[in-house]
Write a protein that binds this DNA or RNA. Sequence first.
DNA 1: TAGGCCATCTGGTCCT
DNA 2: AGGACCAGATGGCCTA
Length: 146
Amino acid sequence: MNLEVVTAQLLSEWKSHESAFGEDRGEDRDSLQSTSPESSLDSLCSSPEMCFSGGSGELEDFSFGFTGRRAASAQRLGKPKMSTKRRMKASEREKMRMRSLAEALHHLRDYLPPDYSRRGQPLTKIQTLKYTIEYINKLSDILSRA
DNA sequence: TAGGCCATCTGGTCCT
DNA sequence: AGGACCAGATGGCCTA
């Protein structure tokens, strides 16, 4: 069985599951938000610090006001507080890490059949993961029966 | 206005 | 010591 046949079979199977899937979507409908397809990436600039590209001095001032409460709890534990420079570097790395994760999820959506994102509403991260699992299971099932 | 989703910051933990 | 990963907290945006 070649790839085209598998794909065709999958799509037809997909259609047959559409009703059940629709219910699933209905269940999730409430959680479908209006984040546009590009929003998860474009919205990287949705908060003040997101558009910061490194201006360390100002960022430092900002994060100081923002993190006071947690720093206090860290000091209470008697642990040596991370240096500001190191903390900023760690924050930057974490930001990049989460962005690459969001990007990967964004990319993953492209591999799901359009049925999964009906009504032009993009999938949330959770939905993307759940539906991907579902999709892979269906593909595996078809292949095992071939 | 409440609730969902998201990006970011942060401290803790593990690993190299 | 420093990087990677994780989970909790927080605030902004959007929709019903």
